[in-house]
Design a protein around this nucleic acid. Structure first.
Lengths: 240, 240
DNA sequence: CGTCTAATTGAGTTTGGTCAAATGGAGTGG
DNA sequence: CCACTCCATTTGACCAAACTCAATTAGACG
């Protein structure tokens, strides 16, 4: 089932009825694939459907006048990469593939129908976008007030918890599919500085990296240094 | 009518029926007042209602371990300060009064009823939270990638456009109800540096300040320096 | 006139940026 | 199997934007 990861993600926050699970699956009208570095959605284009990430990693990015870039969100399987285009219609940022990836296309008409017939499912989708917004606030705080080292520690903690919560990571290990350049774009740092900070994190024996794979050696310290508290990810069940 | 500013804000994005306008007004069960610096909602508390700002300025804030603070959003009349607590139930940040202010209390039960009976109004409220999220992204980009000067220019442009869009400012003038300390907390800067940057903006004759009031002398240049493009505020009408 | 808060100034420091080059690894074609 | 290429990572030397700390000044208010 293509929506398995999404269902898992939502079920962490509140139970879905079998009917709702089926409805979700039927939302997908089409499936599309993109290669690494491809632009999935260009900033400013009018949208008539949203996309659910089925496989791979994707980022939301803004480009500044001088060409510098800010990544405002990193998506993994089970994330809607642009559910917000359902109400906004037109995005303020681009969406790019960080790896080769597959996405399910969900027409806005189908989502509109959900808002007409399925109040609980509507609230769950709304919740999904609210967790994105909470993540934006957390990143803003990290970018505005944390040191580079704390910020990168925070990012590593977040990626691990999110991957782990949908079953894509365990034992404090995961595949880091971001280059140091991309980590810099996510944290508002330069690639050179990211490199130095990562060396420091390894020297302090907080993490270990082998090529693209990361192992968190000392979770408690990493979490503390990154001031990481997963409350913003809303990982508990509650009637919504 | 207490929801006049909210209605104005929503009507910019899509027409509301007379029935919807009435329903909005009836959402408010109660009215509360807070003094400057009061905490309206403390991070982590479970919520059973949301609050609509009727008068004054309010901020969303996160506090770090060492006591430093990040403001993630500034609210003016007509803004829901915590509509996101409807789906999240529990906020990842606090909400504090920047000035004396009045708020309308909207019980989650009433919002739930809206999601059951009023799909269009539901989408409009969802849109409202999506504009908050778009603002978070814009701030994140500004914090991560803009110079202090550009960032503060951007903030001034945003505040002016938002105030102007609900009729609370015109002629490129508005009352800046933030201290330099608070501007720093919003931009991830220290108050001392904000002070120096503001002096620079005045010296370049981009803005003029008299006590708390700001006049934008050269809108085009300020907008350019701040890389301010109001697209993220979604100030156009479209069927939602 | 005294108090309180916010704004301003000065001197010295630090974090992270810039620029340019070197290294390392994975994949490719001969 | 070996050069070659393409990225990404790493290193070094130097720089600058923003921070720190500690005073001082200015306004608003009672």
């Amino acid at each position: 089932m293509r929506t398995a990861d999404l269902v898992k993600k939502l079920q962490i926050r509140d139970a879905l009825s079998p009917n709702e699970v089926t409805l979700l699956e039927n939302l997908i009208s089409d499936e599309v694939a993109f290669g690494r570095h491809d632009t999935i959605i260009k900033e400013g284009e009018h949208q008539t459907s949203s996309r659910l990430l089925l496989q791979g990693w994707v980022a939301r990015t803004k480009i500044l006048n001088d060409g510098r870039r800010q990544i405002s969100q990193i998506h993994i399987a089970g994330d809607f990469v642009d559910l917000h285009s359902f109400t906004l219609k037109c995005l303020d940022h681009s969406i790019v593939a960080l790896t080769d990836c597959r996405l399910g296309v969900v027409p806005h008409d189908a989502l509109r129908k959900v808002t007409e017939d399925q109040p609980h499912l509507t609230r769950m989708l709304w919740l999904n976008t609210m967790i994105d917004a909470a993540t934006h606030r957390e990143w803003l705080t990290a970018t505005g007030r944390l040191s580079a080292q704390s910020h990168i520690a925070h990012l590593i903690c977040e990626l691990y918890v999110r991957l782990q919560s949908v079953g894509l990571a365990r034992d404090h290990r995961f595949d880091m599919l971001l280059t140091q350049e991309e980590i810099g774009d996510a944290c508002g740092l330069t690639a050179v500085h990211v490199n130095r900070v990562m060396q420091e994190l390894r020297a302090r024996e907080l993490i270990e990296t082998k090529q693209r794979s990361v192992r968190i050696i000392d979770w408690d310290s990493l979490q503390k240094i990154g001031e990481f508290d997963p409350i913003y990810l809303n990982l508990w069940s509650e009637p919504r």
